[in-house]
Amino acid sequence: QVNIAPGSLDKALNQYAAHSGFTLSVDASLTRGKQSNGLHGDYDVESGLQQLLDGSGLQVKPLGNNSWTLEP
């Protein structure tokens, strides 16, 4: 069960990665100043990332080996 409060997208993504045990490689300029609506409930990694990114204009991309990145 994930419980991440709304706020900074950077912070939300870092909390989610730490909670879910995956690696997220992101260029900080992509997420700077963006906000997230947070995340509450049970999600697989990709669904949770998509939910956190909702409205940010960013997309999640798998890199393999439980690693992910973001792209515009």
Rank of each mutant, 00 (worst) to 15 (best):
Q1N: 12
A12K: 02
H40T: 11
Q35R: 13
V45M: 06
T31Q: 01
V45Q: 06
K34D: 03
G33H: 07
D54K: 15
L53W: 01
Q59V: 14
K11R: 13
A12Y: 03
N66I: 02
A17D: 03
D44Q: 06
Q15N: 07
W68H: 01
P62I: 09
V45W: 12
P62R: 15
Y16G: 00
Q15Y: 10
D42L: 15
G57P: 00
D27N: 09
S36K: 00
A28G: 09
G48S: 04
V26S: 06
S20M: 15
L13D: 01
Q51W: 08
T23V: 10
P72A: 12
L24T: 03
N3C: 15
Q35W: 15
P72D: 07
T69V: 12
E71I: 14
A5W: 09
L53S: 03
L24F: 11
L63Q: 07
Q50I: 13
K11W: 15
L49C: 05
E71Q: 09
T69E: 08
D42S: 13
L30A: 03
S20V: 15
H19R: 09
L30W: 06
S36G: 02
A28M: 10
P6G: 08
N65I: 09
E71W: 07
L63G: 07
T23W: 09
W68I: 04
G48Q: 02
G41M: 03
N3V: 11
V60E: 03
A28V: 10
G48R: 03
D42H: 14
L70M: 05
N66L: 06
L52Q: 00
N66H: 07
V26L: 09
W68C: 05
G55K: 06
G7D: 06
V2C: 11
S20P: 03
S56K: 04
D27A: 08
G7R: 02
L30D: 04
L63W: 06
L70I: 15
D27T: 07
A12R: 04
N37R: 13
P72T: 09
G48V: 05
Q51G: 06
I4Y: 03
Q50D: 06
E46T: 09
N14W: 14
G41K: 04
Q1S: 13
G55N: 05
I4D: 01
L70T: 01
A12E: 03
K61M: 07
K34W: 08
D10T: 10
D27R: 07
L39V: 06
T23N: 11
K34F: 08
N66T: 04
D10A: 12
P72H: 08
K61N: 05
P72L: 13
V26Y: 15
R32L: 12
A28K: 11
S25D: 11
L53Q: 02
E46R: 12
L63A: 09
L13C: 06
P6W: 05
N3T: 11
L13R: 02
G38W: 05
Y16I: 01
D42A: 13
G41W: 04
D44K: 05
V2F: 10
Y43L: 05
D10G: 08
K11E: 15
K11G: 09
G7L: 03
S29I: 10
D27M: 07
D10F: 14
Y16H: 03
L39T: 03
A18H: 10
W68A: 00
Q1Y: 15
S47E: 11
K61G: 03
D44R: 05
G64H: 04
N65F: 10
L70F: 06
Q35M: 15
D54E: 15
P62T: 09
E71A: 09
K11H: 13
S8T: 10
G57Y: 04
L53M: 04
F22K: 02
L39R: 01
G41T: 02
L52D: 00
A18N: 09
L30V: 07
W68V: 02
G38H: 03
P72R: 10
S25Y: 15
D27V: 08
N66Y: 08
